[in-house]
Design a protein around this nucleic acid. Sequence first.
DNA 1: GGGGTCCGTTCGAACATCCGTTCGGTCGGA
DNA 2: TCCGACCGAACGGATGTTCGAACGGACCCC
Lengths: 208, 208
Amino acid sequence: MAIGQRYTEILDAAGEVFARRGYHVATTREIARAARLSLAGLYHYVGDKDELLFLVLARALDTLLQSLDQALAAARTPEARLLALIRTHLECGFTHGAALRVINRDWELLAPPRRGEVAAKRRAYIERGVRVLADVDPRGRSGDELYSAINLLLGMLNGITAGPFVRSAGDARVLAEQVGGLFLHGFLQPSAEPHDAALALFGGTHDA
Amino acid sequence: MAIGQRYTEILDAAGEVFARRGYHVATTREIARAARLSLAGLYHYVGDKDELLFLVLARALDTLLQSLDQALAAARTPEARLLALIRTHLECGFTHGAALRVINRDWELLAPPRRGEVAAKRRAYIERGVRVLADVDPRGRSGDELYSAINLLLGMLNGITAGPFVRSAGDARVLAEQVGGLFLHGFLQPSAEPHDAALALFGGTHDA
DNA sequence: GGGGTCCGTTCGAACATCCGTTCGGTCGGA
DNA sequence: TCCGACCGAACGGATGTTCGAACGGACCCC
């Protein structure tokens, strides 16, 4: 492949616009302008608005999966692997927040043939999560239970990255520890770490 | 007020269509058809598509808040109150799943004046959650920490109700216990209850 | 080296369609 | 006769998409 540089620029622009405005509010004209291209020029590179969304989603999921595998390989203990998963997810949510937001909100808008492909990548990602959870699980939970648990965890993480929180990548590390601690030991855990100001870093779900 | 019955029928239809298709994909013609009304007939009752979304959201949030207050008043211990919150949220997500889905996905699409009103209701709901969490908190967490924690919890719950899980209201009770247990005691908790098949009730995030 | 020609890139302008919204009018009961 | 409920038909605008053409460098043949 080794796709042209112009091509990736267009995908970057499209991803940014999709994330900021949502698939249906974003117009092809707006995307073309963001890519510094005329409308017809955009259609020279891409056949369809749907294809544009697909490319953005596929690329984002690929880098997310790649980052995850890299982080998992570097971690030693099962617990560290879980922390790595959480941190990677948050980091991707902060740095490429644009793309991740599109993934969670707009991927169902894809036309069926391409949606299946994106769904497969999503499943692969969740599959990784299940294996990580299985390793830290003290009691032998069933696959379905682990599947549910990882969905709960991802729900928490997406709740963080979806809202207008802090977006510094530096926060991801300390934030991951907090979230991981809560997930592993629960809200009732007496007092895990003394650096408790971190959870206060991100706020709530506000409006404009 | 005591709004006419036809009016609430229209809101029901609109909420169902919004939930199934999303705000921008749903057309006023589709909503009119679902309400067994002509297009112009729909506009006799409602001035705007935006107003329609607002009414759906406002009504859903009102019933959610009302159900929550009712459940909270009936619960005795702080822990029971947290369970009640979780169960109410899940029940609303299952029975009126349509509306809740709209709340989490489409409320940002409202035009600014009405969006503020909905945001206020949202904040009121979260405020309830913060107070509930404050009561079960063993260490004295700050308001911001509690705020973050309730957002994490709601993220989990929305992750459940957003996906294509089981929608029977009977599941909500046992599911709430499972989720509540996980949130309070953590994933590492050795073995809380023996009835572990419940978490397996709901599946993952699939496609069509 | 020069003229000709292809081809990738880019554009302005339009086309077709769909969607939110409105207008004028009909019908039936008070 | 009035009035609210309801409808068929249209209007205006926005949006995804396409068409035909211009520009410019690469390559070829003489």
